[in-house]
Design a binder for these strands. Structure first.
Length: 768
DNA sequence: CTAACATGTTCAGCC
DNA sequence: AACATGTTAG
């Protein structure tokens, strides 16, 4: 390699394979990037290299990421590396990219350009209608299951008539009938579900002219997380790459964890077959984790058959051994995790920690324990903001404004707040919808004909008028103005205010938050339909904030992230590996990859835990230890595990009825001191290359650490704290719930009695 | 028509 | 244990 190029700022601090990956710009390239191997750095430098060194126009580069958040971060990082504006750079998720294309070219699809995007709950209610119409019993045809099968077809780019050969049994043939009618329903609504976005776009790109236009335009393609692409995404990429073959895919077959939504691991395994001239580069040096953590990950994943094979290595030291803790039940497990977090906090007040679990329901017990200990945390995922009832209600109005064909939204909007319209009236309205017409037109026809009476007639008149007025005033009001206007004119806000309950108050707050989201999007220049797209395509992973000290999330959500300290809870059979997944070999291999992902999130210290007893769906269950514990390398755990009457040790293929070795491992103090020294080393070497690198700040004086319950802003005051409120006078905190902005105190006031007060609004002051 | 209550179902992961 | 759906009383 010539001397002068290695001096290039875009190549600084890169290892040889990383450099090669950055500089390889023409022709297909497969980058096999192991966990923590500096993948993101390579991708961003490569894009910058294309622009700065190859003179590529930013608008000729298309990069696909897995989350919107990752796309945003990538664009920011590229912007810092290059001297030209990057606004024209296309960095987005597959779904956002497809939405953008369909809004532009969509008059050629069955739903036109002004479609709405159906979320899973919209899909489900449409499917229920379909099943009812076809007289298919929901007992036999679980709506969710039927949608899953349809989704599988769509992910393989098969429309109903094309799936006939695949539908061999009578059950699947009936599902195909439902599929046909379901698509018809979507067309009538002018709606796409998530899969349609990919499917329709892929169809568009089958066209030569489209390939010509977009294939020319996007001279350089880059696909991240290639191991997680499904057939539709794969074909889409093939269409776009056909002209230039300048396709760079980055992936890691060991981190493929989305098989259940159609991801096909063969896409990455077969890349060399698709592009025989492809160059393959392996990034195997890990800049993230200690040797112990890496050893554990490698040993576990070696049990999988479907691999290309990589060997991760690190220059970091051995580090701390992995700690496993067996607890009596779920509550004890959560409390143990809390105590370990507190130990770590005492030592380094804002060290970043993540608690990871297999499924969202496992977060509850963790949350309870954290609240009990007054530890602030951020829960990622679970019930999403945009899935809350009040937000969905408001959205139904906005969606109806954007697309009056959306009958699902009509139904929702018309009965929230209630307008005296029940099933009977609703059926009448739907019967009155003209061919290719909207529900609002249907109502107008009935009103004119005098077929509606009483309260329903009065309210429906206002309701229809609301939408005519909205159409007229939308542009003058602006996005946020329109949202606020809708909130008032619909009577929705009034309804909540009339309720006067604490719950209703919370809902109003959520709607206010929604309003500020709208204002933010307005300032970005988004129009209503674009705002709605963004809302619907928002993912859990998008709300990850790496500056949060303590995060709770699923392992899926944690992919691509890293934390100094990681807990993986629920290490039991049936929980992890999950009950359904462990039934097939492929399922089990995917669970193992998931465990691999979990392990490799940790930089310095990995804690694993399990529980002997756990409440699952209300009933107490006895658990067996996860088989993955057994797959850890010998000596990875400090002690053998005694579970029930049996004894069990890492690195052994089977249960062994041996005597447990006594003694406890390192004390908390020495354990944490060693983690500290790890970080000192990390800081000293300050390597580039880890994904979303965040180094912990310098430690604080011991005197500050030992002080109990510091009045940290944003942290809850303990029970018994005396406070002063401008409205109610003096009082004492008797309880606290929620956290962050939702932190709410229950306070016993000297005069006013007991009140619940939201900390953010209460203007409370601590006394004394 | 609506709200409250009773019963049945789910807890796998997500764009 | 939480949620969705179905039933019943007002």
């Amino acid at each position: 390699m010539p001397e002068d190029t290695t001096d290039h700022p875009l190549l600084q601090n890169l290892n040889p394979p990383q450099m090669e990956a950055v500089m390889h710009t023409e022709g297909p390239l497969l980058i096999l990037a192991g966990a923590g191997s500096g993948k993101t750095t390579v991708i961003t430098r490569r894009i910058a290299w294309l622009i700065e060194e190859k003179g590529a126009h930013p608008g000729s580069i298309l990069a696909m990421t897995f989350t919107n958040k990752a796309a945003e971060e990538m664009r920011d990082r590229v912007a810092q590396l290059v001297s030209v504006p990057v606004a024209q750079l296309w960095v987005s998720t597959f779904h956002s990219f497809c939405t953008r294309i369909l809004r532009r070219e969509g008059e050629r699809t069955p739903v036109g350009r002004d479609f709405v995007i159906f979320d899973p709950s919209d899909q489900k209610s449409l499917m229920k209608q379909v099943l009812a119409e076809l007289k298919m019993s929901e007992k036999q045809f679980h709506p969710r299951r039927v949608l899953e099968v349809i989704s599988d077809f769509k992910n393989r780019c098969l429309l109903p008539e094309e799936a006939v050969e695949e539908a061999l049994d009578p059950w699947t043939r009936k599902v195909l009938d439902a599929y046909t009618l379901y698509q018809k329903g979507l067309r009538n609504h002018r709606a796409c579900d998530f899969d349609d976005l990919l499917l329709y776009t892929e169809r568009l790109f089958r066209d030569d002219a489209m390939q010509q236009i977009y294939g020319d335009r996007f001279r350089y393609l880059l696909v991240d997380e290639y191991q997680d692409t499904n057939r539709a995404q794969y074909l889409l990429v093939q269409h776009l790459a056909r002209r230039h073959h300048n396709l760079c895919v980055v992936g890691d077959e060991d981190q493929s964890i989305y098989g259940w939504r159609g991801a096909d691991i063969r896409n990455i395994l077969d890349f060399q077959r698709d592009f025989p001239e492809a160059v393959q580069i392996k990034l195997e040096q890990n800049y993230r984790s200690t040797q112990s953590i890496l050893d554990a990950a490698s040993t576990v994943i070696a049990n999988n058959a479907q691999r290309l094979g990589k060997t991760l290595w690190t220059e970091r030291g051995v580090g701390e051994p992995i700690t496993f803790r067996l607890n009596d039940d779920g509550r004890a497990e959560a409390e143990w995790v809390v105590s370990k977090i507190q130990d770590a906090r005492r030592f380094d007040r804002d060290i970043k920690i993540a608690v990871l679990y297999r499924a969202n329901w496992q977060s509850r017990q963790m949350e309870e324990a954290l609240r009990g200990a007054n530890l602030p945390y951020k829960l990622v995922g679970g019930t999403k903001f945009y899935e809350r009832q009040e937000v969905k209600d408001l959205l139904s109005y906005l969606r109806l404004i954007a697309n009056p064909y959306d009958l699902q939204s009509f139904r929702r909007a018309v009965s929230s707040p209630t307008r005296g319209v029940g099933p009977t009236t609703l059926a009448k309205i739907e019967g009155a919808i003209p061919e290719n017409g909207t529900a609002l037109e249907g109502v107008a026809i009935l009103l004119k004909a005098g077929e509606l009476k009483g309260r329903a007639a009065r309210e429906l008149h206002r309701f229809v008028e609301l939408f005519y007025r909205a159409a007229n005033e939308a542009s003058a009001l602006g996005l946020a103005g329109l949202v606020r206007w809708t909130l008032h004119e619909s009577g929705y806000l009034q309804m909540l205010e009339d309720e006067g309950t604490l719950e209703a108050e919370g809902r109003v707050r959520n709607l206010e938050e929604f309003l500020s989201a709208a204002a933010e999007c307005e300032s970005l220049g988004l129009r209503l339909s674009e705002f709605l797209d963004r809302v619907t395509l928002a993912a859990d992973a998008d709300q990850v904030d790496q500056s949060i000290e303590l995060s709770l999330m699923t392992i899926h959500c944690a992919k691509g992230l890293e934390f100094p300290i990681v807990f993986v809870v629920g290490m039991e059979e049936e929980v992890f590996p999950n009950r359904q997944a462990r039934e097939t070999d492929e399922g089990l291999e995917e669970e193992r990859r998931l465990f691999y992902v979990a392990i490799t999130r940790a930089k310095a210290k990995l804690y694993l835990s399990g529980a002997r007893r756990r409440r699952i769906m209300g009933t107490e269950m006895l658990g067996m230890p996860s088989r993955f514990l057994r797959e850890l390398p010998e000596g990875a755990l400090e002690h053998p595990i005694r579970w029930g009457t049996e004894l069990y040790q890492a690195g052994q293929g089977a249960w062994t009825p041996e005597r447990a070795r006594g003694g406890s491992g390192a004390s908390v103090a020495t354990e944490l001191t060693r983690i500290r020294s790890f970080f000192d080393k990390v800081r000293a070497t300050a390597q580039v290359g880890s994904e979303r690198e965040t180094l912990p700040p310098a430690s604080m004086p011991a005197s500050e650490l030992s002080a109990p319950s510091l009045p940290v802003p944003g942290e809850a005051w303990p029970k018994g704290t005396r406070i002063q409120s401008p409205r109610f006078g003096r009082g004492v905190i008797t309880a606290a719930t929620g956290s962050g902005e939702g932190l709410t105190y229950t306070i016993r006031f000297a005069e006013a009695g007991e009140k619940r007060i939201v900390a953010r609004f209460g203007m409370l002051e601590r006394e004394g």
